[in-house]
């Protein structure tokens, strides 16, 4: 087992409120890891930190390259850290900081290989399904402005490749028939799938799913769990998910991380977690001491 993502000592404060306190966990390559916990435990905050939407107060989030074993990517640096005095005699650090201050942000985290979906679906409603998927490949396809205006052969080939890849994912998620529909007009379940397809079009190494089963009926949830398993088994994708549906979580997860009040109270295999006293206490409340 090789780790893909290491979160270490992650602390997040909003003003005076400490939302996360020294959270640490690792996500193994080609595994399914679930973040669970009662409402308000800080799951979504962890998610937003990992995907770069929140800038953690302290701690490290590191994405490893399993092929080479080296070349770790510091996901926090990409959000633009504040300058320190010591930077001024280290021009290299200074210029890196300055660069990420100016051009950093969540998009860099995505380009490093982390894709996500949202709890409340965020599609481009006025764009077609296919366009939604093409937008996701923006970072990879970008031909020059001139090439696009003149429709050079290179540009058309790149465009075609993007359409082909989008088509593959549409087929995987069984959305092929909807390719030219406006995304906003799709039924709810379709929108959930489209959002996953769109995240996958960015060619991530780590796919983060924020409550993917929310609002789905049992049949759909069942199908979803098969899809997530297929992503791991067929494509070697690593999945990190937040989910409230314990049935789904226990079925498919390799590893569970339980959060409560912003702290990791337990982690391990699903079977072990089910027996953990602290987890039971967190979910069911403690009995009289």
């Amino acid at each position: 087992m090789t780790p893909l993502l290491t979160v270490h000592d992650l602390t997040m404060r909003f003003g005076g409120v400490t939302a996360l306190q020294a959270v640490a966990f690792t996500v193994q390559q080609a595994s399914i890891t679930a973040l669970i916990g009662p409402n308000g435990a800080g799951k979504t905050t962890v998610f937003n930190c990992v995907t770069g939407f929140y800038k953690a107060t302290t701690g490290t989030i590191c994405l490893h390259d399993p092929q080479t074993g080296t070349g770790d990517i510091d996901l926090l640096e990409m959000l633009g850290e504040s300058f320190r005095l010591s930077d001024f005699w280290r021009p290299r650090t200074l210029s890196r900081r300055l660069f990420f201050k100016l051009f950093g942000g969540p998009h860099r985290v995505n380009r490093a290989g982390v894709a996500r979906t949202f709890q409340n679906i965020r599609l481009f409603d006025e764009l077609t399904v296919m366009e939604n998927l093409l937008v996701a490949q923006q970072a990879q396809v970008h031909g020059g402005l001139l090439a696009g205006l003149l429709q050079t052969a290179h540009f058309r080939r790149k465009e075609q490749e993007a359409v082909v890849r989008a088509t593959e994912w549409l087929r995987f998620f069984d959305l092929l028939g909807e390719a030219n529909r406006l995304a906003g007009t799709l039924p709810y379940g379709y929108q959930r799938r489209l959002e996953m397809a769109r995240a996958l079009c960015t060619r991530p190494r780590l796919l983060c799913l924020d409550e993917p089963a929310a609002g789905l009926n049992p049949n759909e949830t069942q199908a979803l769990s098969q899809l997530i398993l297929a992503l791991r088994d067929r494509f070697g994708l690593t999945v990190l998910l937040i989910e409230h549906d314990m049935g789904l979580v226990m079925d498919i997860s390799d590893h569970l991380v339980v959060l409560d009040h912003g702290e990791v109270i337990a982690q391990g295999k699903p079977a072990a977690i089910q027996q953990d006293a602290r987890v039971l206490a967190a979910y069911l409340g403690t009995g009289e001491p």
Partner: peptide, 19 residues
């Protein structure tokens, strides 16, 4: 397409690697 996507949903755009 990126312009229109940004008009529709900026947060989603950022999650897709668009600056």
């Amino acid at each position: 397409r990126a312009w229109e996507a940004l008009r529709e949903n900026e947060i989603a755009c950022r999650s897709l690697g668009i600056n």
